[in-house]
């Protein structure tokens, strides 16, 4: 694929949250709607992304590279890669999801959302609150009503861990 491009490949620098720099081919970042617009309209060669941790950015760049290499013949391999890709602690997965949403990488966003859903669908209400750092804003009466109506959401064998 790359052989068909003429002249020099354009190079772009992404700067992660902790100022770590990532140098990559411009064609790769075009998968991100956000970066694509920045590159096309503003002709920048370096893009700061302070809200994205370097660790998260490393993962996303890894995905962009793999996705760019996707052909009909290595579909299976890519699927396995995707599976491995989301096989990280939940907190990291959430960081990735947020970043992907920010960068507007649509296909990956859907995949991440599904992965998050799969990971939280056995968790208790308390665990979900912890994961998303939510404080219940229901009154104690409402809270106890919920516990009475759907005890299985609070107890039972629902997974109570947050990772």
């Amino acid at each position: 694929m790359a052989s068909s491009t003429t002249g020099e490949k354009k190079i772009l620098t992404l700067k992660g949250g902790d100022n770590e720099e990532f140098i990559l081919e411009e064609s790769l970042v075009l998968q991100s709607e956000l970066l694509k617009n920045m590159v096309k309209e503003e002709r920048v060669s370096s893009i700061p992304l302070p809200s994205i941790k370097s660790k998260t950015l490393v993962k996303i760049i890894e995905y962009l590279k793999k996705h760019a290499e996707l052909t009909p013949s290595n579909k299976e391999e890519f699927k396995n890669f995707e599976k491995e890709f989301v096989n990280v602690v939940l907190e990291e997965l959430l960081d990735i999801t947020v970043a992907v949403n920010y960068l507007k990488i649509n296909g990956l966003l859907e995949f991440c959302c599904q992965a998050v859903a799969d990971r939280i669908k056995d968790k208790s209400v308390e665990a979900v609150r912890k994961i998303f750092r939510i404080e219940s804003d229901f009154t104690p009466e409402e809270e106890s009503e919920f516990r009475k109506e759907t005890p299985e959401a609070f107890e039972g064998d629902l997974d109570d861990t947050t990772n």
């Binding site: 949250g17 907190e91 997965l93 960081d95």
Partner: peptide, 13 residues
């Protein structure tokens, strides 16, 4: 030293 104080979970919420 990370600039992002908030976690992904919090942002999503």
């Amino acid at each position: 030293g990370d600039l992002t104080a908030s976690s992904g979970g919090e942002v999503i919420a």
